[in-house]
């Protein structure tokens, strides 16, 4: 699944992206109240299933290598479990968070 060569210039760009995204992640998450920690964890866990993109490419772009196709298919299966299972179970949990009156829960006391 060779597409481009990772040269130092694009590498630096990717590092740049990586660092900025980490800081963004820290900013986003540090404000989550502890009541939502479990859904946050399973929800962000589902996001980490993004590796499915790599798995898809590993399966579809490795012509001529049965071994790689097998590996790729396995990777797609596991990553998809991560994605589908993660989002669904998070939704199941969040569905349960209610206030008694079911009013706009912004008015938290």
């Amino acid at each position: 699944m060779e597409t481009h060569v990772l040269d130092p210039f694009s590498f630096i760009n990717l590092i740049f992206l990586f660092v900025i995204a980490i800081f963004l992640g820290v900013e986003l998450i540090s404000k989550v109240p502890s009541i939502l920690h479990t859904p946050l964890m399973s929800g962000s866990n589902a996001v980490s299933g993004i590796t499915v993109v790599g798995a898809l490419l590993a399966t579809g772009l490795t012509p001529g290598s049965t071994f790689c196709t097998v590996l790729g298919t396995l990777a797609v299966i596991f990553a998809t479990i991560n994605v589908v299972g993660g989002y669904l179970v998070t939704d199941r949990m969040l569905k349960m968070f209610k206030t008694k009156s079911n009013e706009t829960p912004g008015a938290k006391k």
Partner: peptide, 23 residues
Amino acid sequence: GFVIINSMLIVAGSLVGASGIIL
């Protein structure tokens, strides 16, 4: 993401990585 040179993987992966560290 670095292996297959894919920005999306890097962004999503680091977001999750950061959230895990915070927790």
